[in-house]
């Protein structure tokens, strides 16, 4: 190897400087602030140790319910989006489907819309008396199913999750289709010769070969689900009451209350949580690759 061809380390200096100034240092500062009593009302910032973290995990049941809601939302949307995206992708790569690209475009299109727009549109569609959904149900004689979608405690979370899955599954579908297309048709031809059924082919060829794609999809969904804000904010604003509040809506509320340290504490918790989760997911991926 020609050592002259290697650029000296200080060539990265500019990039490292800008990266640390704009990304790294603010991030670390944010975490450091979570150990203080930084707020809007006094200029002093005092070190308070783990006090903020303790109050999140003890007395304030509200924060724990936000963390619980965030996890529930993440798990539900990840599973539903992956399953729905996978099924649609499988369907839209079959030979008997006409106008595949048109269907793909239609299913993908919600992804292009802004979360705020989707949230506001669905809020009016799900209004109990003037909304499209209930009027439609009533007009076809299903009055019993015309419910208070966004204000009934039992229904509000499923409603929010459904809207989010509707919006997000198109993207997952596109990623999985890309994975499906890259599987060599030789495997399927060989299976056909052996007389394998569709279900056997899916189980023994498609899913194993799609594993890396599916793991990526899961990472995307999990990190999105944990950081969700705009969907909830525009659809229910965390309501009724705090029934659909998640970590990021709580962060927003703490900042607007002027309790800046508590806001950074909650977002630091989220950061560490995502970091830990990603570490394990990536570790398991490395492991898989070594096996193959």
């Amino acid at each position: 190897m020609d050592r002259n061809k290697i650029y000296p380390w200080y060539f990265t200096g500019g990039a490292v400087f800008i990266y640390s100034l704009l990304c790294f240092i603010p991030g670390v500062l944010g975490i450091l602030y979570s150990f203080t009593d930084w707020n809007n009302f006094s200029r002093e910032i005092n070190f308070v140790g783990l006090k903020n973290y303790i109050s999140v995990f003890s007395g304030h049941s509200e924060y724990m319910s936000f963390i619980g809601n965030t996890l529930l939302f993440t798990i539900a949307t990840t599973i539903l989006k992956t399953v729905a995206g996978f099924c649609i992708a499988l369907l839209l790569t079959q030979k008997f489907i006409k106008f595949k690209n048109f269907h793909r475009m239609v299913i993908f299109s919600p992804q292009v819309m802004s979360y705020l727009v989707v949230g506001l549109v669905f809020r009016s569609m799900l209004h109990p008396t003037t909304g499209f959904v209930n009027n439609f149900l009533k007009s076809i004689g299903l009055e019993r199913l015309a419910l208070n979608w966004l204000t009934d405690l039992k229904l509000v979370f499923p409603s929010v999750i459904t809207v989010d899955v509707w919006k997000g599954m198109g993207y997952i579908m596109v990623v999985i289709i890309a994975g499906l297309v890259s599987i060599s048709s030789a495997y399927y031809e060989a299976a056909d010769i052996d007389g394998a059924s569709f279900w056997q082919k899916t189980k023994s060829i498609t899913i194993p070969l799609l594993k890396p794609v599916i793991i990526n999809v899961i990472i995307l969904n999990v990190t999105y689900g944990l950081r969700v804000f705009d969907m909830i904010y525009s659809l229910t604003n965390g309501g009724p009451g705090n029934a659909t509040g998640v970590i990021n809506t709580a962060v927003y509320k703490e900042f607007s209350k002027g309790n800046l340290a508590m806001g950074t504490t909650l977002s630091s918790i989220l950061f560490f949580f995502i970091l830990a989760l990603l570490y394990f997911i990536l570790r398991s991926m490395d492991h898989k690759e070594m096996e193959t």
Partner: peptide
Amino acid sequence: DVGKDLESMYAGA
């Protein structure tokens, strides 16, 4: 915030 709590009360939470 009180408004949200009243909403919670109406919803039964």
